[in-house]
């Protein structure tokens, strides 16, 4: 048993960024032991997309190309991943901790009779054992964990924490045959949210608003700043519960866990349940009129002031910068 198998996610035939991050990390980790890296890609009409994975370190891509796999199903996709595991006998199976990866990894793990290390933000290899860091207790602590000697080691990697890296290379395509695909829970449709807004879970930059915005109309200010930066709009639970913005924008314990390069919190106090969702962001910025707001304790940069004055001024400054 050796090597790392990476589950790769696609939507309409295009590979998701988070999967390339997981694949790149597998490539970096495997180098230490000279392990092979392979990908497994279920979908429909995906052969073209599969070829592109070589550039991110996959020497082999197992594809399960079937009309019944066009949309996600835990049972169908798990069968494909397990079939690839049986062929490759890897030491570890990586997933990205996306909605799909977090759904699928435990189902695959249970099929293989192993556990799982979910949503890890750090990974090192000791011999053949992965030692992972996982945020727990709302990121108030980190657990350093391993799979207690059980293999394959099923691990899901938090999106945007590990870098995607094009290293060049070609992948051999291997078709997975003989799948039965007995799927009971079937996805009928994938419905994109109104306006096709960028999702906080996938954004490099997030502009978030909280109760300090005072009302739904002021999310326009967040959208304006976000638009300039190519950012997604996030929100605290207080703003979501007040009905100012849809829950899909909520960041935190009962919202999404995000890890962007830049997180700008406007009028958000920084309650622990909010921090749980964004404290692994690389750069945190806070705009808040209360100098004692807890958000300033985690902020790399902050402005103490009225967001209704500071944010429009920021917008002006960024426009100037762009024009220059």
């Amino acid at each position: 048993m050796s090597g790392i198998l990476v589950f790769v996610e696609q939507r309409d035939g295009s590979i998701r960024k988070a999967s390339l991050q997981a694949l790149s990390e597998a490539h970096r980790q495997a180098a230490a032991n000279g392990w092979p890296v392979a990908a497994v890609l279920p979908g429909s009409g995906i052969e073209g997309a599969a070829g592109s994975l070589g550039a991110y370190g996959a020497a082999k891509v197992f594809i399960a190309d079937d009309a019944n796999l066009k949309l996600y199903s835990a049972e169908g996709y798990a069968e494909a991943v397990v079939a690839a595991v049986k062929q490759m006998e890897p030491n570890a199976v990586f997933f990205s901790a996306t909605a799909m990866g977090r759904d699928l990894a435990p189902r695959v793990a249970a099929k293989l009779g192993v556990g799982g290390l979910a949503d890890v933000t750090g990974l090192t290899l000791e011999g053949e054992t992965f030692v992972a860091t996982r945020p727990v207790y709302s990121a108030k602590a980190f657990a350093i964990v391993d799979t207690a000697g059980k293999t394959p080691q099923v691990i899901s990697l938090r999106p945007n924490v590990f870098a995607a890296e094009e290293t060049g290379g070609n992948a051999e395509i291997v078709k997975l045959d003989g799948l039965t695909l007995s799927i009971r829970a079937m996805v009928k449709e994938l419905v994109s949210s109104e306006g096709g807004e960028l999702d906080v879970a996938e954004a490099n930059i997030i502009v978030s608003g909280g109760r300090g915005l005072k009302g739904p109309e002021n999310f326009a200010l967040m959208r304006e700043l976000a638009g300039l930066l190519g950012a997604a709009v996030g929100a605290s639970r207080a703003a979501v519960d007040a009905g100012w913005i849809d829950h899909s924008h909520q960041v935190g314990q009962t919202g999404k866990v995000v890890s962007p390069t830049l997180y700008i919190a406007n009028g958000i106090s920084g309650a622990i349940q909010h921090l749980a969702g964004m404290s692994s962001s690389k750069i945190i910025v806070a705009v808040n009129k209360d100098p004692d707001a807890p958000i300033f304790k985690v902020a790399d940069y902050g402005v103490v002031g009225d967001l209704f004055q500071v944010v429009p001024a920021m917008i002006e400054e960024i426009k100037k910068l762009k024009a220059a």
């Binding site: 990121a139 980190f142 207690a148 404290s279 985690v298 940069y301 902050g302 009225d306 500071v310």
Partner: peptide, 28 residues
């Protein structure tokens, strides 16, 4: 199937750069 080697508190974060913007938000 899950072994906790240790539980650790997050590393202390270095204090950020906080700008006072009450008087002159534009400059901040």
């Amino acid at each position: 199937t899950y072994n906790v080697r240790s539980l650790e508190l997050p590393p202390e974060k270095a204090a950020g750069t906080i700008i006072q913007g009450e008087d002159d938000p534009q400059a901040a």
